[in-house]
Write a protein that binds this DNA or RNA. Structure first.
Length: 483
RNA sequence: GCUCCCAUCGACUAGGGGUUAGGUCAUCACUCUUUCACAGUGAAAACACGGGUUCGAAUCCCGUUGGGAGCGCCA
């Protein structure tokens, strides 16, 4: 049994689509689970779509995700180079082999002719548009003189008719296409760069890729690849076409209907673990009821056999839930450190926050947030004075006698040097009983005064965390504003 | 239009000849909590349709319908 080798072969066109991240993840998981190699190859054969910095971004994302690759840019390997743009001579050489075997031919047709041809075929309502093999019939002399004259040309695959192309897909089983339907695919573009089809097949073979695991959108072009393997006389790798990630309307996941770039999710504050966990479950399950996974667990559980066939809708609600779960699973100190970082980019930047203060905020808020930034968004009152008071809550909880009640409460804590959480509780209960009211008559106004809102952590926690001085200040302010 | 792929609750899925068709998210209710959450309990919620095979079909086969993807000198 030969070594399992898989690759993630993105095209550096800018951002990374979340669907591509899942493809990378499945490749990575499959490699690690089977003890195989995971290779990163950059498919930069389209000069027109080149984007500055895209490769760095790609590598950075791999690192962020924790997908350590065994071979690839910056890491080397025995099958390099791993940039297709640096393998041009290899493609040319292989194209020559095909030319010699008469499996491929030169084509001098202009883009205009091809466009016209396509339009004409569409007008005639032909079942499919494809190249008419015009240049296949050029004589050797014509070809040579055209080449000598420096005429722009491409090289096409010569697809023979009347053939049935069958292959086995690991996920979908036997798939077959009639060769009539396969176009004479361009292998080499007029700029001397190969197309995806050629470069991909040549590299997968040369890099000894055993399993081609990629998105389902590639299934229809797989017959072209099979034909190429045949033309070269190479053994087919195992194909595995992954189900697509879908929008809510079940179309292929795309911009317009939400965020699709991995970066978008990073920026929004999703944890790496949560995003990985989530996309792993989009199209795969271990078969049990487990929903919460870390990457190492995914590695040990993942098998290609358990990947589904049908597309999966990207449901942000479940992602949010997983983010919440992963956030809570962290140590308070770790969350506090993350919070400290996020505060630096918030409107609270520049302020000093002691560790134990942040840890206390984390402790009382962690069951109430899904994202780190919500610690200061939802519980802003730990970071600034409330400047307004929630109207509905004022109406409901702020009574005529509230100021008087709060005055009594203030008196009780004023004399305590260091007020503990329990002291606040005792003071509150004493206030209630002295005033002959229920605890709620103290709690609600106090909550409103200190936080400005009606929900949040326990009121004693709030008072304790903001401290005696601020508690008193805020009560005074509330009384003067609300009367 | 043509080719290929797909089809279990709203979403992700388990189950693959005999199940009260299970779990998770979301939704709703109750409990806990004088707040908001968390948690717990419960509810509602699905085998696209039609034929066949079989004692028996969500499960196997065929068809229909529906959905999707692909049909570039893009990948």
């Amino acid at each position: 049994m030969s070594q399992i080798r898989v690759r993630y072969a993105p095209s550096p066109t800018g951002y990374i689509h979340i669907g591509n991240l899942r493809t990378a993840l499945y490749n990575y998981l499959f490699a690690k689970h089977t003890g195989g190699k995971f290779i990163l190859r950059i498919e930069d054969t389209d000069q027109a779509r080149k984007v500055e910095g895209a490769v760095d971004n790609l590598i950075n994302t791999m690192e962020w995700a924790g997908f350590e690759y065994d071979e690839g840019p910056g890491r080397g390997g025995d099958f390099g180079p791993y940039y297709q743009s640096e393998r041009l001579d290899i493609y040319k050489k292989h194209c020559d082999i095909l030319l010699e075997k008469r499996k491929a031919y030169y084509c001098f047709c202009t883009a205009e002719r091809l466009t016209a041809l396509r339009e004409e075929q569409q007008k005639q309502k032909l079942p499919q548009t494809k190249y008419d093999k015009h240049c296949l019939h050029l004589s050797e002399e014509e070809v040579n003189s055209n080449l000598a004259a420096g005429m722009p040309h491409v090289i096409r695959l010569n697809v023979e008719q009347g053939d049935v192309i069958r292959f086995h897909d690991f996920i979908r089983g036997e798939v077959e296409f009639m060769s009539e339907l396969v176009d004479d695919q361009i292998l080499m573009k007029s700029d001397g760069f190969p197309t995806y089809h050629l470069a991909n097949v040549v590299d997968d073979h040369l890099m000894k890729i055993s399993h081609v695991i990629r998105g389902e959108e590639w299934l229809p072009s797989t017959p072209k690849h099979v034909l190429l393997y045949r033309a070269f006389g190479w053994e087919l790798p195992t194909f595995a076409h992954l189900p697509l990630l879908l929008n809510a309307d079940r179309s292929k996941l795309s911009k317009r209907q939400g965020d699709v770039a991995v970066e978008d999710y990073r920026k929004k504050g999703y944890l790496t673990e949560a995003l990985i966990n989530f996309i792993a479950l989009l199209g795969w399950t271990a078969g049990d009821d487990k929903e919460f996974y870390y990457l190492p667990e995914l590695i040990s559980e993942f098998t290609l056999e358990r990947v589904n066939k049908s597309g999966a809708v990207f449901d942000i609600e479940k992602l949010n839930w997983l983010n919440e779960q992963h956030l809570r699973a962290k140590y308070d100190s770790e969350i506090a450190a993350m919070l400290r970082e996020e505060l630096k980019n918030s409107k609270y930047a520049g302020q000093e926050y002691p560790d134990d203060f942040l840890i206390n905020v984390v402790k009382v808020m962690k069951e109430r947030v899904s994202f780190v930034r919500e610690f200061y968004e939802k519980a802003f009152y730990f970071f600034e004075e409330p400047t307004s008071y929630e109207e509905a809550s004022v109406k409901k909880g702020w009574k005529e006698q509230s100021p008087a009640i709060l005055r009594v409460f203030e008196e009780k804590i004023k004399n305590i040097e260091t007020v503990s959480k329990e002291d606040y509780e005792t003071a509150l209960k004493e206030t209630a009983s002295e005033m002959g009211v229920g605890n709620g008559a103290v709690i609600h106004p106090l909550r409103l005064a200190t936080s400005g809102v009606s929900g949040g952590p326990g009121i004693f926690d709030i008072c304790f965390i903001i401290g005696k001085e601020k508690t008193l200040q805020r009560i005074d302010r509330a009384i003067s504003v609300l009367k």
